[in-house]
């Protein structure tokens, strides 16, 4: 068959109100173009500055997470490694959802889960304190933003972050993270 599941996928994505979806290499130029296109799409749906800005910010943060930290990478023309993953932005009745997925080494799952557990259990005030503490820490080779991304996204969202891990093969697991942005009151 020359069109494997193509219509079915299209139908499904339409039904799920997918604004944007991408699976592949998250190189910086591609992220910039997608983020810009997303900004336009959201702007046509809302007049609220903060809704637009926060979706944009979360999209960039999740995309760059894939770029830097996915265990699955591809080399570009310059020989630089770029992460591979999947990112989906969808619309619901009362909110937008930005979800990302990528492979990580299974040995990192427990550490990541703990980080997510801590952040998702915090109140807004606790997140603020934690964020500003973490921002003072020096950068490490493992994290360009000293692990600030997750905390920042949780602060921008009115809902708890959702996350999960599922085994992929002997050494890799699939890491999923969803962040929601409320549509709020249209003006």
């Amino acid at each position: 068959m020359s069109f494997p599941d193509l219509y079915q996928q299209y139908r499904q994505m339409t039904d799920h109100r997918i604004l944007m979806s991408f699976k592949g290499v998250f190189a910086q130029p591609a992220i910039v173009e997608m983020a810009s296109a997303l900004r336009g799409k959201v702007a046509s749906r809302t007049n609220q500055t903060m809704v637009m800005k926060r979706i944009f910010a979360i999209f960039v943060e999740l995309s760059q997470n894939i770029l830097f930290y996915s265990a699955e990478t591809e080399k570009d023309e310059d020989g630089k490694d770029n992460g591979v993953g999947i990112l989906i932005v969808s619309e619901m009745d009362d909110r937008y959802c930005v979800s990302s997925g990528n492979l990580i080494y299974t040995s990192r799952v427990e550490g990541m889960r703990k980080k997510c557990d801590i952040v998702s259990a915090m109140t807004k005030d606790e997140l603020k304190v934690y964020y500003n503490e973490q921002r003072k820490l020096p950068r490490s080779s493992e994290s360009k933003g000293a692990g600030l991304g997750l905390i920042d996204m949780a602060r921008k969202s009115e809902y708890p972050i959702e996350y999960g891990f599922t085994p992929f093969n002997d050494e890799l697991s699939f890491y999923m993270l969803s962040v929601y942005i409320s549509k709020g009151q249209e003006q």
Partner: peptide
């Protein structure tokens, strides 16, 4: 707009 990595530079 600045991302979290850039926010450390501003700091």
């Amino acid at each position: 707009y600045f991302n979290t990595s850039a926010s450390k530079c501003v700091m």
